[in-house]
Simulated scan of single mutants.
Amino acid sequence: MFLGTFTPKLDDKGRLIFPAKFRDQLAAGLVMTRGQEHCVTVYPMREFEKVHEQLRQAPVTSKDARDYLRVLLSGAEDVVPDKQGRVTIPSHLRTYAGLDRDCAVIGTGSRIEIWDTAAWEAYLEQTEEAFAQTATEIVPGLF
């Protein structure tokens, strides 16, 4: 499970070193793609295979489903981290997420998100109070 927030920096070649506690789960390979709110989403290969299988269930007659699949999969890259846990984030994903140097790598359970640090801080500032004030059931049966 991926938990926590880390602040690595991209090097001049667009490479990022994943936090040590994430590396074992990613060593066999991963998929990076566009995420919601303009971040890069990183899935361990096995988790992405599960997600893809769920996506295959979407009706091809649905324009929304086709659009979503096209954007998600056309931006996807499969990668194996090097021995230091380092990956190169493709330029199209760096552009999509506005990644330059300072990054926030956040664990979101079954996946990781890579954000521009300023964008992550702005997002968190905007949504943290709503989280604290949540009084309705967001996830059925959780609270």
Rank of each mutant, 00 (worst) to 15 (best):
L72F: 13
L55K: 05
A20N: 04
H38P: 02
Q133A: 10
F48K: 04
L124S: 09
R15C: 12
G107T: 00
R66S: 01
K63P: 03
E47H: 00
E37S: 05
D78Y: 06
P19K: 09
A130H: 08
I17R: 11
R34H: 04
I106V: 14
A20R: 03
Y43T: 06
D78E: 15
A28P: 02
G141N: 13
G4C: 10
L72S: 10
P59S: 11
A130I: 07
P19G: 01
I114K: 08
D78W: 02
D11V: 03
T95E: 15
C103N: 06
Y96H: 12
G109T: 08
G4E: 13
D100S: 15
D78R: 14
A65R: 01
S110A: 15
H38D: 13
D24G: 15
T117Y: 07
T95C: 00
G141Q: 14
E113T: 10
D82I: 07
R70C: 12
L10V: 06
T134G: 08
V40L: 06
L93D: 10
P81A: 07
D82H: 02
D64W: 02
R66G: 00
E53T: 14
R34E: 04
R94W: 04
R94D: 11
A135Y: 00
A135M: 02
Q57T: 04
G14R: 09
D82K: 00
P90A: 02
V139G: 03
E47M: 01
A76E: 13
Y123K: 14
K13F: 08
T136G: 09
A130V: 13
T117M: 14
T5G: 05
R15K: 13
G29N: 10
A65K: 00
S91Y: 08
L55Y: 04
T88V: 15
A119H: 07
Y68K: 00
R56A: 09
P44R: 03
M1N: 11
E77H: 14
R46V: 08
V71T: 03
M1E: 12
R56W: 00
A130D: 15
G29E: 12
A104S: 13
R86H: 07
F18S: 04
D67N: 09
L3D: 13
L26V: 03
S91V: 10
Q57G: 03
F131S: 05
A132L: 12
V105C: 11
R15S: 13
A135I: 00
L72V: 04
E37G: 01
A132V: 11
I112N: 08
T88N: 11
L26F: 07
P59Y: 03
L99E: 13
R46I: 04
Q25T: 05
S110C: 09
L99Q: 08
E125D: 12
L124R: 05
F2V: 12
A27L: 04
A118R: 15
T117I: 11
A119D: 07
F18E: 09
G85A: 07
L16E: 08
W115E: 07
A135Q: 05
D78C: 07
R94F: 03
Q25C: 00
Q36M: 06
G85P: 06
A28H: 06
A104W: 03
T33V: 01
G109Y: 05
R94E: 12
L142N: 10
V60Q: 05
E121Y: 01
V105W: 04
W115P: 02
I138N: 05
A119I: 01
G98S: 06
